[in-house]
């Protein structure tokens, strides 16, 4: 199988823009709706996902030659579950407040389709370093999405950013509700679509 020919930079930017896990691939959307109420939450979960993705990708890339094809998926699941447990334990131990905010979602990283998908489509065919950069890209892509959503929702919902009072009042409480999560993700996706349409139109015009 051919290894990727992309440079590391391309791998990272691919994860953040072209194949953004939230807005483009539309995977792992539960946390995007559920706990993107503040920038901090988004950042913390983004970091957790980043670590799980990078570690799992590297692990799989490193042992890809030893995995029997029959037990490929169980191995992925086991790898992810292991790293999720590790992250879960670490977060619970060292940042209990943020961990409590994120609730069940840290543990649910194990069910994120995005991670399994990257292992299946990328890590098991590429070198450790390429997988590392791809994991970084995907993780940052996820984090970017979460932070962007968190930014909008925290600013509009609470009038704060990272917990600091920015506006001095609460503009629209609605934005901290779950319903707003759906709207924000939907509108963000539409924005991505719009950019794509405009971009394609320009490209064609050229």
């Amino acid at each position: 199988m051919p290894a990727t020919t992309k440079t590391n930079f391309q791998l990272v930017s691919n994860g953040i823009l072209n194949e953004n896990p939230i807005f483009r691939l539309a995977l792992s959307m539960c946390p995007a709706v559920g706990i993107s109420t503040t920038v901090m939450n988004g950042l913390m979960l983004g970091i957790a996902v980043l670590f799980v993705q990078v570690f799992s990708s590297c692990t799989i890339a490193a042992i890809k030659n030893y995995i029997h094809p029959r037990i490929r998926i169980p191995t992925y699941t086991l790898t992810i579950a292991t790293w999720v447990t590790v992250i879960d334990l670490v977060l619970a131990a060292y940042v209990p407040a943020a961990y409590k905010e994120m609730g069940i979602f840290v543990k649910l990283i194990v069910a994120f389709a995005i991670i399994t998908m990257r292992l299946e489509t990328f890590a098991c065919k590429n070198t450790v370093s390429a997988s590392f950069w791809d994991g970084i890209g995907m993780g940052f892509g996820f984090m970017f999405g979460m932070v962007a959503l968190g930014f909008v929702r925290e600013l509009l919902g609470m009038g704060t950013l990272l917990g600091y009072d920015v506006l001095g009042f609460r503009p629209l409480l609605f934005f901290v509700l779950p319903a707003a999560g759906f709207f924000c993700v939907g509108i963000m996706m539409a924005v991505f679509n719009y950019v794509e349409i405009v971009y394609n139109r320009k490209k064609r015009a050229r």
């Binding site: 995995i67 790898t79 292991t82 447990t85 590790v86 131990a93």
Partner: peptide, 22 residues
């Protein structure tokens, strides 16, 4: 054998992290 080994390694990793972080 492969599954057992990976399970063992996973358990080892998780166990040690648990002990460290607990």
């Amino acid at each position: 054998v492969g599954l057992t080994i990976s399970c063992l390694i996973a358990a080892l990793v998780m166990g040690s992290v648990f002990v460290i972080t607990d």
